[in-house]
Design a protein around this nucleic acid. Structure first.
Lengths: 186, 186
DNA sequence: GGCTTATGGCTATAGTCAATAGCCAACGTC
DNA sequence: GACGTTGGCTATTGACTATAGCCATAAGCC
């Protein structure tokens, strides 16, 4: 038996690709193994469980999303930065629907690594709102609001939830612009 | 064998209860059958498939949510109506997390019945925004924005996505108030 | 009441999953 | 080149969806 040269990283990457192509439900160990040219039980040499694999996909996705958001934020501030980050968020999700779905699963509250990468995403959102002169709790509220709006929109969009024939790009701009206009004037 | 007196409605209701108690993942035919005092294959006399059962749970949930929103809207208008509907939406979801999760699954685009009950929810949102003098596409944009914001917030909340120790009720109020303030000023 | 038919339970079973046990060849180390 | 570790493998278990086919109950009809 020649070795396939697997690593946890390769398995996680392939699992992410599979999820993006066929939805999170298509992420089965058999399917991942098939893609890697290996039998299903062999994966257990590299992962703990299906749950662990999904966690791996989720962590990698959050890291990647966080980097994309950071890139979108550099050199910008205020409403401009918010719009840029929001656009980057949505476009990342549309490119990686399955990986994004993996990030949504409720994490174990004392999963330190997960908290860390999640905090990074939140920190970009907080940083981008810094120019709005919100203090203390209001800054947290605003970050939650922006995250909620973006997450809600892209989730509904990904689930095919927008039935009416209205341009989705414009609706997204409207949402972000409205929220930006409303922050601090509530 | 005494008959258990099942109906599709009872099966769907029990399935919804199960989903609310243990999460959508806990919704298995064996578990539903166990609750109804019946063997798993017997359910197939009342439902088509697990997928069909989930669709049933989703439709019933959307109907129930729609009614709750309608009740919250009557006799109110403007920002007051928006806040009332938003509060009703969130509280319904917190009461029925599993049923709500069932509604999120991407429906078949030509499922007429699903389109109908989904449209009812959207129509409440549109009605509640009527006082904001938005015309044509802007009304659709605003409805999408409000739905996205609410859905995003409650989804993140249900998934345990708000780590920081800030009161969640107040963050929700902030979100809705900010959006209301921003509508029309974008 | 008795006959017929449709219906709603049941057992048995196939097929797909995740997961574990235990085997053996390939590789690294000395 | 021998040795231990590692990364594949087959076989198997148990949970799940789903189907096939049985039979008692309930409903309708004379």
């Amino acid at each position: 038996m020649p070795r396939a040269g697997l690593t946890p990283e390769r398995v996680v990457r392939e699992a992410g690709d599979l999820a993006d192509e066929g939805g999170l439900a298509a992420l089965t160990l058999s399917a991942v193994a098939g893609r890697l040219g290996v039998r299903q039980p062999s994966l257990y040499k590299h992962i703990d469980s299906l749950d662990g694999l999904q966690r791996g996909v989720s962590l990698a996705a959050k890291r990647d999303l966080g980097e994309a958001l950071t890139r979108a934020a550099v050199g910008r501030s205020g409403p401009d930065a918010v719009r840029s980050v929001a656009a980057a968020y949505r476009s990342w999700v549309l490119d990686h629907p399955g990986r994004y779905a993996a990030t949504v699963r409720a994490p174990d509250p004392d999963d330190e690594e997960d908290r860390e990468v999640s905090a990074e995403v939140v920190s970009v959102v907080l940083a981008v709102l810094a120019a709005f002169d919100l203090e203390g709790d209001q800054a947290i509220d605003a970050a939650r609001a922006l995250r909620s709006a973006i997450h809600g929109f892209v989730s509904l969009e990904a689930a095919g939830g927008f039935g009416l024939p209205r341009d989705v790009d414009r609706s997204y701009e409207f949402l972000i612009d409205s929220l930006v206009a409303g922050l601090g004037r509530a």
